[in-house]
């Protein structure tokens, strides 16, 4: 299938990039591996009740980004959540509580922001791109299911390591060698995350998020049900710290999930050990830490005029959802305004 622009990755970076290209009249197709859009801005449901298991809230200070977030239906803004913090541990994005940063949640789940961005876009879900081959006609893409696509402009908007893996499927290109070397100097950090649901009767604490003091294992516990209007269940999201998670990446889920639950019970109370339901999630590339920040997306033009753009949370200062959005926006801007060489 021939397309003007293809965006690989329906996370916040890819969606915002596609959206701006679409609004400028470009014909865009988004290919996304998962069953829904949003990537790491992830929400799932237990008995219909949303649970955010990527970021716990959306935060930022860039006016354009905040405006986009505020445009999402039902958004609670600003700083409505977290109302009560507990503990003195480090938040995953330390800047989330700094200076002019504003914070927002969505009772329908944070993922609704991504769905909103995707509203007018052509998105093909459950499509994993496994191979990219530039030739005279364009970039030829192959998917896991054996489908093929062709485009002149290609945007890759994945986690850093996934981007590198996809670039590695391309034949060696002088244009790319330096960029691959550059990206090789950056890295994402992992997070093992456990979701747990409890009956309403448990003695739930009064805080929204707990950042445990000096814990080498627990990043945070989010009492997700406090973000919901009339929750049927008390729900917790328990995140492991990057180093702790990295050491356990290869273990079976049950092993680290049991460990996380026990650690959470020590912090919150014995009732935490008796969930109605749990669900483990292995974030191999959860986010980029400070110091792993580029200032802008990458756009490179091949000899025959094909253009390859790279966006994602590492391609804008600060990391996280805002950086992902800004990188997608900046890349769209460059694709629309930079003349082909």
């Amino acid at each position: 299938m021939r397309q003007e622009v293809i965006v690989i990755g329906g996370g916040i970076a890819g969606l915002q990039c596609a959206r701006e290209l679409h609004q400028a009249g470009r014909e865009v197709l988004v290919l996304e591996r998962a069953r829904g859009v949003g990537g790491r801005l992830a929400t799932r449901r237990y008995e219909g009740q949303p649970i955010d298991f990527g970021p716990m809230f959306i935060h930022g200070q860039n006016p354009a980004f905040l405006k986009a977030v505020k445009g999402t239906e039902g958004v609670i803004f600003p700083s409505a959540w977290p109302r009560y913090l507990q503990g003195h541990g480090q938040p995953c994005q330390p800047n989330a509580f700094e200076g002019e940063e504003q914070r927002a949640i969505l009772p329908a789940g944070l993922n609704a922001f991504a769905k909103d961005l995707a509203a007018d876009l052509k998105v093909q879900l459950q499509t994993t791109v496994t191979q990219v081959t530039p030739d005279a006609e364009g970039f030829a893409l192959t998917t896991e299911a054996g489908q093929t696509f062709l485009c002149r402009d290609l945007v890759v908007a994945l986690a850093l390591e996934e981007t590198l893996a996809l670039l590695a499927t391309m034949p060696v290109q002088p244009e790319l060698v330096g960029i691959q070397a550059l990206l090789g100097m950056f890295a994402s950090v992992p997070s093992l995350t456990l979701l747990a649901a409890y009956p309403r009767e448990v003695p739930a604490p009064e805080w929204d998020i707990l950042y445990p003091d000096q814990s080498a294992s627990l990043q945070l516990i989010s009492q997700d049900s406090r973000k919901r209007e009339s929750p049927e269940f008390i729900t917790l999201v328990i995140q492991g710290r990057p180093g702790w998670s990295a050491q356990r990446m290869a273990l079976p889920n049950e092993v680290w999930a049991a460990e996380l639950l026990k650690l959470a019970a020590e912090q919150v109370g014995a009732w935490v050990n008796q969930p109605l339901w749990t669900s483990p999630h292995r974030w191999r590339y959860a986010r980029v830490d400070r110091g792993n920040e580029l200032s802008r997306p990458i756009l490179t033009t091949f000899d025959n005029g094909l253009r390859l753009g790279l966006a994602g949370d590492v391609f804008s200062p600060g990391g996280g959802v805002q950086a992902a959005w800004l990188s997608g926006s900046a890349l769209a801007h460059r694709l629309l305004n930079e003349v082909r060489l």
Partner: peptide, 18 residues
Amino acid sequence: YALQDQGMDTVEANLALG
């Protein structure tokens, strides 16, 4: 500098490093 040490002085990479 590390990129230069590897003999790679790509304009786009330097701009992205910003």
